[in-house]
Amino acid sequence: MPTVCSIEPTPNPLATKFVLDAPLQIQSARQFDSASRAFGDPLAEKLFAIDGVAGVYCTNDFVTVTRMPTADVEALEAAVSDCIEAYKPRRVINVSCENPPPGERAPSVHDVGDPFETDADDPDLLMQINHVLDEHIRPYLDKDGGGLDILRLQEFALTVRYKGACGGCPSAVTGTLFAINNLLQNYVDDRIQVILD
């Protein structure tokens, strides 16, 4: 059972990172931007039940919660910490997405945070880009309670999506995106143009 060992601010003024002392035992990072998208994820469902929660990003090592601008920060942080510490990872039950239980919708790839296949016209270039992002960008986004997914690579146009604290962060939309673009142009190919989804 994870315990929150620290609560950290992020560059996004509406997001807070809850660092854990034990892994959540999930297979991949999960991003939820609404309670309806959290359906089927027990921790995210409980976090969205807390008044003021607007977004949830879960990794094995931390949970980032984005709050509504009017939320009481101290009350929200206490409630989120209690919720995380009460969470007991459960065994995953294999439910077919094609035949969900009656009254439930099938989870989609983006709901549960499973890895999805990137649409790329040049797989070798995509591999080089991912290597540079893994070495130079993703560790820093992770420290700030966020992440980055590549959605598409078509004719050197790289479409990305921020996760966690990076989503909606003013510096991520301007400075960080510019830095990613420059880094990829310098290390991989000067024709790359990074586009935010």
Rank of each mutant, 00 (worst) to 15 (best):
V4H: 14
C5M: 15
S6G: 11
E8F: 07
A15C: 11
K17C: 07
D21E: 12
D21C: 05
L24Y: 04
L24P: 01
Q25K: 04
R30I: 05
F32S: 10
S34D: 08
S34H: 04
A35N: 10
A35R: 07
S36C: 04
A38P: 06
P42L: 09
K46T: 05
K46E: 09
A49L: 14
A49K: 15
D51E: 04
G52F: 12
G52S: 09
V53G: 02
V53H: 10
A54Y: 08
G55Y: 00
G55Q: 05
C58I: 12
N60F: 12
V65P: 11
A71P: 01
V73S: 08
E74W: 11
A75I: 06
V80Q: 14
V80D: 14
D82T: 03
D82P: 02
D82S: 08
C83S: 00
I84K: 15
Y87H: 12
Y87L: 05
K88N: 07
K88W: 09
P89N: 14
R91S: 15
V92I: 15
V95S: 14
P101Y: 10
R105I: 00
P107Q: 01
P107S: 07
S108I: 00
H110M: 00
H110E: 00
V112G: 04
G113D: 00
P123A: 10
M127E: 13
M127T: 15
N130F: 03
L133S: 11
L133Y: 09
I137H: 08
R138I: 03
R138T: 02
K143C: 10
K143P: 00
G146C: 02
G147A: 09
I150D: 02
R152V: 02
R152K: 02
L153S: 05
L153Y: 06
Q154H: 13
T159N: 06
R161P: 00
Y162R: 07
Y162H: 10
G168A: 03
C169A: 15
S171G: 01
G175W: 15
G175K: 13
T176Y: 08
T176N: 04
L177W: 12
L177A: 02
F178L: 09
A179H: 03
I180L: 00
I180K: 04
N186E: 11
Y187D: 11
Y187C: 13
I192E: 00
Q193P: 01
L196N: 08
D197T: 06
